[in-house]
């Protein structure tokens, strides 16, 4: 464990806590893409298959359980909670996320570290996570003004993988045999997808104005 990875995990946890706060406090999920949340739930379920077979540390196990439980709870809430589901922008959340699923799975069949069930699903979860934010970014552009909690949620979500990139650079320096190309390249793509959001987030922070994404 290194400071970059720890900060990355904490940033990821904060993003999830912000989303839970928004849904719990406002009983609303306006501006949140259910499709992105479903993709994240799938990312965690397919990445943490080793939850019960490979014990790494208490921290690792606890964080995996928190990520799986929170993502499933958010999807469940957005689908079934009477107040929350009414605030879901169904007509704006129209990204064809099934294509992201299919593309990630096909790519995982082609590009993986080892042709084994868990390895292919691990690669699938890495590719899927890289593109899972797309429905959310499209929804933000369509819904024009972005409420503060939603803006913070997306910001921390983008920042966590950027910190992981520093973690991979650090691990490579202390151990030149460390290679994790699939996660690294995907992480770069994932972070790059937030580039324009980060730009408008910075502008809104500098001008102390509301976060506006151009349509």
């Amino acid at each position: 464990m290194n400071i970059f990875r720890f900060l990355g995990d904490m940033t990821h946890l904060i993003s999830i806590l912000i989303l839970l706060l928004k849904i719990y406090a406002t009983k609303s999920c306006s501006g949140i893409s259910l499709k992105t949340q479903e993709l994240y739930a799938l990312v965690f379920l397919t990445r943490y298959l080793d939850l019960f077979t490979d014990f790494i540390s208490v921290y690792n196990t606890v964080m995996k359980l928190v990520f799986i439980a929170s993502s499933l709870a958010i999807v469940w809430c957005m689908r079934n909670h009477p107040l929350v589901r009414r605030s879901y922008d169904k007509q704006l959340d129209t990204f064809r996320h099934y294509f992201l699923l299919l593309a990630s799975f096909l790519l995982a069949l082609l590009l993986h570290e080892k042709f084994a069930f868990q390895e292919v699903l691990w690669a699938f979860s890495i590719y899927l996570e890289a593109v899972a934010i797309l429905p959310q970014l499209v929804l933000l552009q369509r819904s024009g003004n972005v409420d503060n909690l939603t803006g913070q949620y997306v910001f921390f979500l983008g920042a966590y993988r950027a910190l992981y990139i520093f973690n991979w650079i650090y691990r490579y320096f202390i151990d030149p045999h460390f290679t994790r190309w699939i996660a690294c390249v995907s992480g770069l793509v994932q972070t790059a997808l937030y580039a324009d959001f980060f730009y408008y987030y910075f502008i809104s922070w500098k001008n102390n104005a509301k976060l506006q994404l151009p349509a």
Partner: peptide, 10 residues
Amino acid sequence: GARSSPKDEL
């Protein structure tokens, strides 16, 4: 088979 990277990250 090829050794795969340790899955020690979240």
